[in-house]
Amino acid sequence: MQFSYEVKDSYAEVKSVGRLNMVAAPKLREVVNEVVAGGSSRVVVNLAETDFMDSSGLGALIGCLKAARQAGGDLRISGVQPQVKMVLELTNMDRVLTSYTSAEEAFGDD
């Protein structure tokens, strides 16, 4: 599992590659906290290369969403793959974690 991020004009994109499981979840929290602490509270987590997420990974995304909102921003997700979509739907979290086709589109409306 790897995370990288890039701060853009109006948002920061965090790329998640691999399995977002209990091993990777704390690393995602670290990266997003670093991004938010750096002043970018509008965060897109790009999941296009994340083919698996479990409830620990989902918990980390929820924690990151709260951190971004507390800093006055928001967290959105993009490029959701079928397994991740299934986990979001079964946990009813698809209504809380808004999913966009691409990272560019996630904050494109505001």
């Binding site: 479990d54 409830s55 620990s56 989902l58 918990g59 980390a60 929820i62 924690g63 709260k66 986990v87 079964l90 946990t91 009813n92 979290m93 209504r95 809380v96």
Partner: peptide
Amino acid sequence: SMPDSEAESGRGLALIEAL
């Protein structure tokens, strides 16, 4: 049972049962 949407853990068993 599935916890509320703010919870950061506790979804594992509910998820297993749904799967």
